[in-house]
């Protein structure tokens, strides 16, 4: 029998009042009901940030550069292909392509890029978060849905859930005033799901949000998922204030991270997978996260640039990933973008 769904009010109450161990136990039970076989998955992929030039200038971002900044870049096709070649050689099945909103690039750049990647490689392109999709569409004078359909035909397979930050326009106005609104983000995801594309969803907390904003965010994801079923996974991670306009602000602590993670698992009863963020938390914390609701370790991250720009750098080999999962008492499996197991390890 399906357990009764938790309401927004009850979730807010839990989040504010319940002890971490109580929340953890609830999340652990929810996780083990969804994944009773005790397998923890990860994907081998590479983050390719094709450009760091961005007009949005989000105040929490340490990665972006202005168009005239000497540190601004756009990767050449050759650099890009080399990165993909290395990824494939390392057993990678996916590239995560994300970048800034670069006014010098139009939809033809993206279409050409996707086609040429697909011509050369058999690899899943998980690319372009909603702010990028929306920007590409707007510049090409297309609807989001039209732009998505064209990009998909050119080779875009699935869409990462970045740019969701906190789906509260009050908080977005403070921290990322130029980024698409909550409803804009949700619309891109809805359109993608309607076209049959799968996406993930993220949440960046530990910024200027209140507990109520976190619950609203989770509810927006759960509501859309009820309609489309297109989200494969939810990935909460904590804001890293280093090298941003919020430098000096205390980052979310371990207790806060696990509380949000656990609440996410309890609330999102219709999202099959929840990722632990070892990139922001470190491997030992990610191990603990596996008992606080997470069933997936995300990616081995052959390359990661955005969090590193904020001064937080953790790296991990496939071997370390497998040992960490086993050390936490689970079986380890490599998965593809759609959470199909491709190798038991």
């Amino acid at each position: 029998m399906r357990p009764e769904r938790i309401s927004k009010t009850a979730a807010l109450g839990l989040f504010k009042e319940a002890g971490l161990l109580k929340l953890g136990r609830m999340a652990d039970e929810a996780r083990s009901a969804l994944h009773p076989e005790g397998v923890v998955t990860f994907v081998v992929d590479r983050n390719i940030n094709y450009t760091n030039i961005c007009i949005n200038r989000c105040r929490f971002c340490a990665f972006y550069r202005d168009a005239d900044d000497p540190e601004g870049y756009v990767l050449s096709k050759r650099e890009l292909f080399n990165k993909i070649k290395e990824t494939v050689a390392l057993g990678g099945t996916q590239i995560l392509m994300q970048g800034g909103l670069n006014p010098a690039l139009d939809i033809n750049y993206y279409l050409d890029l996707l086609r040429s990647i697909k011509k050369k490689f058999r690899i899943n392109v998980h690319g372009f978060s909603p702010p990028e999709i929306s920007y590409i569409a707007r510049k090409a004078d297309l609807t989001v849905r039209e732009a998505l359909a064209i990009l998909r035909e050119a080779g875009l397979d699935s869409i990462p859930g970045g740019g969701a930050e906190i789906l509260s326009d009050r908080v977005r106005k403070k921290m990322s005033p130029n980024k698409i609104s909550s409803s804009g983000w949700l619309k891109v995801m809805r359109d993608a799901h309607t076209l049959g594309m799968r996406t993930t969803a993220t949440m960046m907390f530990g910024g200027k949000e209140k507990p109520g904003d976190i619950v609203e965010h989770l509810d927006a994801i759960r509501t859309l998922q009820d309609m489309t079923g297109g989200f494969t996974a939810f990935i909460p991670w904590s804001f890293q204030p280093g090298n941003t306009e919020y430098q000096g602000m205390a980052p979310a602590t371990a207790v806060e991270y696990l509380r949000v993670l656990a609440l996410s698992r309890v609330y999102l009863d219709n999202v099959p997978n929840v990722q632990a963020s070892w990139v922001t938390q470190g491997l030992k914390m990610a191990q603990i996260a596996l008992r606080f609701g997470a069933n997936d370790m995300g990616s081995t991250m052959i390359e990661e640039n955005v969090v590193r720009a904020a001064g937080v750098s953790h790296s991990v080999t496939m071997d370390e990933m497998i040992k960490s999962i086993k050390g936490a008492g689970f079986m380890a499996s490599q998965r593809d973008t759609y959470y199909n197991i491709i190798k038991r390890l």
Binding site: L20, T253, A254, V255, G282, K284
Partner: peptide, 11 residues
Amino acid sequence: LGEKISQLALL
């Protein structure tokens, strides 16, 4: 232990 695990250790 690191700051994160030691904080959890308080629980």
